[in-house]
């Protein structure tokens, strides 16, 4: 076998350190705590929905970008994944609108 310095990290692009992974984990925990807090604090009224949406979307992006390495990988993988995500979200939105919004 040819010499390697190890897997994908041998290519010349950046790669998070363990320290950065732990930082991300801490941020994820904080966001989760905020979500739960928002849930319990009844002050937000109907705004709780977009706030929760934004918070969980941020967790999603953090895991995807750092843990799943999308930030450092060639963009085609992000396109593939985000493509599926967009179609899935649009479908959920469409079904919701049809059942609870405009019809059904």
């Amino acid at each position: 076998m040819a010499e390697h310095t190890g897997g994908a990290a041998s290519a010349a692009h950046a790669h998070p350190t363990i320290r950065q992974y732990i930082v991300v984990a801490v941020i994820l925990t904080i966001i989760t705590a905020v979500e739960v807090a928002v849930f319990y604090i009844h002050w937000f009224g109907v705004f709780v929905y977009p706030i929760l949406f934004v918070l969980s979307a941020s967790k999603f992006v953090l895991v995807g970008a750092y843990y799943m390495h999308l930030k450092y990988d060639p963009p085609v993988m992000t396109w593939l994944f985000v493509g599926g995500l967009v179609i899935a979200t649009a479908t959920i939105g469409g079904l919701w609108a049809l059942f609870n919004g405009f019809g059904g």
């Binding site: 990988d73 959920i92 079904l95």
Partner: peptide, 28 residues
Amino acid sequence: ISHRKLLMWAFLASDCMFFGTLIANFIT
């Protein structure tokens, strides 16, 4: 890119639709 890595990402895109449908059903 490794073929297998690309395959896994394409599969995950489809799994988004799979769970998306289940979530949509739950919301309904």
